[in-house]
């Protein structure tokens, strides 16, 4: 009895000891910096770009559009544009992920893993490299641009980049694997007898998909949406390399404040807002998932 409790104590001690270094590291280099960001967002920028510890709400007012010179919609629009880009990327990747997931799940057993690996490999190559590749793919003399020129979608001699189209193409290409994996996990487990029952009742096409299949795939789509939306909204490389001056996103604004403009308190306010936004989004996903579960029970 005595040795037993001693042994348990020792095992608890070793558990704590093995947890300690990793959790301390994360607290020090993850939580502390996030806390610093939140604190600095209430500070003032000095004349030389230094941070002065004078409490202010000014930075948040500026993000909301109320600057020194009255209302200016620049920052709110950037915020909304980033959310819009994230939402569109979620929608487009979801539409693209479905056929791929269905085709892979219908492959014979041993080819399924291969199919998944083939889809995921591009995702493992460098994002920067893939973005740079889209610059070449959409340059004026590329096949895609020539095709668009032939259709008179763009004036001859111009490419499809820089611009919004380039950003969207690259975003979908980059985030598709994030969507495919969870969607595939749902599609794999589909109960096709429901689809057969719906077909017996005369359902075809969209109604068949909407009522017999979509409810079963929804958990995968939700998980995929979270995986895509979070990084897509904060993306700064893709708009930076493929967009023009009109496509400044949250990430680019952040980079500016910590780079050329050197306005750290304002940048911190933007970062804090981004964190709040993502937190709200995760809570929303949780609530929707929770409702689903309740409905199923």
């Amino acid at each position: 009895m005595n040795t037993d409790s001693k042994r348990r104590e020792r095992s608890a001690l070793s558990t704590i000891l093995s947890l300690l270094p990793g959790t301390t590291w994360l607290c020090l280099f993850m939580l502390a910096p996030l806390l610093v960001i939140v604190l600095i967002s209430f500070c003032t920028r000095g004349d030389y770009g230094q941070v002065e510890h004078v409490f202010t709400f000014e930075n948040y007012k500026r993000v909301a559009g109320y600057g020194t010179f009255g209302f200016d919609s620049v920052y709110p629009i950037i915020l909304l544009r980033s959310i819009w880009l994230g939402a569109c990327t979620v929608l487009l990747t979801a539409i693209a992920a479905l056929p791929l997931a269905f085709v892979i799940s219908k492959l014979p057993g041993k080819f399924r893993l291969l199919g998944l690996i083939i889809v995921v490999i591009p995702f493992w190559s460098n994002l920067l490299v893939r973005t740079f590749a889209w610059q070449m793919l959409l340059a004026p003399d590329s096949t895609l641009s020539r095709f668009a020129q032939w259709l008179h979608l763009v004036p001859s001699g111009t490419g499809l980049y820089p611009g919004s189209l380039a950003i969207y193409l690259c975003m979908v290409c980059d985030y598709l694997p994030f969507m495919i994996l969870p969607v595939y996990a749902s599609v794999e487990k589909l109960d096709w007898s429901l689809a057969e029952a719906a077909m017996d009742l005369g359902a075809r096409g969209w109604p068949l998909f909407r009522h017999a299949l979509l409810p079963q795939i929804r958990p995968g789509l939700l998980a995929g949406s979270a995986l895509v939306f979070l990084p897509a909204t904060g993306q700064f490389l893709i708009p930076d390399l493929l967009g023009g001056a009109k496509t400044v996103m949250l990430g680019n604004l952040l980079q500016q404040q910590f780079g050329q403009s050197r306005d750290w308190p304002f940048g911190s306010a933007i970062a804090t807002l981004a964190l709040l936004l993502l937190g709200a989004f995760l809570v929303l996903v949780r609530i929707v998932q929770g409702n689903r579960k309740v409905e199923c029970e």
Binding site: I37, G234, F236
Partner: peptide
């Protein structure tokens, strides 16, 4: 947390820290 936080926020928070 580090998995969910966008890399740019992580980058700038470390820079400040």
């Amino acid at each position: 947390i580090p998995v969910c936080v966008p890399d740019i926020v992580m980058g700038v928070s470390l820079l400040l820290f």
